[in-house]
């Protein structure tokens, strides 16, 4: 399988690997996928008082494209409000990384991870 330059770059030098404490007020955690499907993505966002995402971290069990997709979205969500983050579409991720058709689901997973992280954050703040 030939990978694009950008996938290789994110794979070799993944951005924002790590974890925040799940208990933290401003942190939203999203975990999507399943080991049996070959991919599990954990994305965390840290949201400031003003509703802007200050920081993001990820860990991914999956192929190179899945790792690159999640690495990329940690960069993209930073500086966005949670509502703006929800506007990130998998097609944009796939385009930026030049993913081949068989790897589109890796980008869908990354979009789902953003949604799950935002939902977790909102749940903490509504309840």
């Amino acid at each position: 399988m030939a990978y694009s330059e950008k996938v290789l770059d994110h794979y070799e030098n993944p951005r924002n690997v790590g974890a925040f404490s799940k208990e933290d007020e401003g942190v939203g955690t999203g975990m999507v996928g399943a080991p049996a499907c070959g991919d599990v993505m954990k994305l965390q966002i840290k949201v400031g008082k003003d509703g802007v995402i200050e920081d993001a971290k990820f860990k991914t069990y999956g192929c190179g494209s899945a790792i690159a997709s999640s690495s990329l979205v940690t960069e993209w969500v930073k500086g966005k409000t949670v509502e703006q983050a929800l506007e990130i579409k998998n097609t944009q991720i796939a385009e930026e990384l030049a993913l081949p058709p068989v790897k589109i689901h890796c980008s869908i997973l990354a979009e789902d991870a953003i949604k799950a992280a935002v939902a977790d954050y909102k749940k903490k703040h509504e309840g």
Binding site: G38, G62, C63, G64, A66, I67
Partner: peptide
């Protein structure tokens, strides 16, 4: 265990 096959081969 706990690493995915394709990324491991990469």
């Amino acid at each position: 265990a706990y690493v995915e096959g394709e990324s491991m081969i990469m």
